[in-house]
Amino acid sequence: MDQSKCTLYSGGLKGAEETFGEAAEQYGIKEIIFTFEGHRLSRNKNSVILSKEELERGDISMELASRMLNRTYYETEKIRKVLQTIFHMVNNGHQVFVIGSIMDDNSVKGGTGWAVELAKLFNRPLHVFDQPKKQWFTWKDNGWKEDAPLIEYDTFVGSGTRYLNDAGREAIERLFTDSSAAAKVKKA
Rank of each mutant, 00 (worst) to 15 (best):
V98Q: 06
N92K: 12
E170M: 13
P132W: 06
V128F: 10
T155C: 02
R40N: 10
A183T: 07
I86F: 02
Y9W: 08
L150V: 10
I49M: 07
R71E: 13
I99A: 09
K81R: 15
Y27S: 05
D166V: 11
K120R: 15
V108L: 12
Y73N: 03
S42W: 02
T72H: 12
F87Y: 15
E22F: 12
L8K: 04
K52G: 00
N123M: 08
E56M: 07
K187N: 14
P125D: 14
W114Q: 06
N92I: 00
R174D: 14
D147V: 02
G160F: 01
D154I: 00
W136Y: 11
M62Y: 01
R162M: 04
T7P: 05
R80Y: 02
D154V: 00
R124A: 07
T19N: 09
M89E: 15
K140Y: 11
S101F: 07
L41Q: 05
G110T: 04
G15P: 06
Q131A: 09
F87T: 06
K30C: 03
D141F: 10
N123S: 14
A119K: 11
V185H: 09
E31M: 04
K134W: 02
N70M: 03
G158L: 01
A23D: 04
K134Q: 15
I49E: 13
W144N: 10
L175H: 10
R71I: 04
T19P: 00
K45M: 02
D2T: 12
H94N: 12
L55T: 00
K52E: 13
W114E: 04
S61P: 03
Q84S: 04
S66T: 10
D104E: 15
V128D: 10
I60G: 00
A183Y: 08
V98T: 12
D2E: 14
C6G: 02
Y27Q: 09
M89N: 15
H88D: 05
V98M: 10
K133N: 13
K145I: 14
T76L: 01
T161Y: 06
R162N: 06
A148I: 12
T76F: 07
K134E: 15
Q135F: 05
E152G: 06
D104Y: 11
G160E: 03
I32N: 07
T35L: 03
G15H: 04
R174W: 07
K52V: 05
Y27K: 11
S159Y: 00
T155P: 05
G15T: 06
K186E: 14
I86L: 12
T112F: 03
N92H: 14
R80C: 03
H127K: 06
Q131F: 07
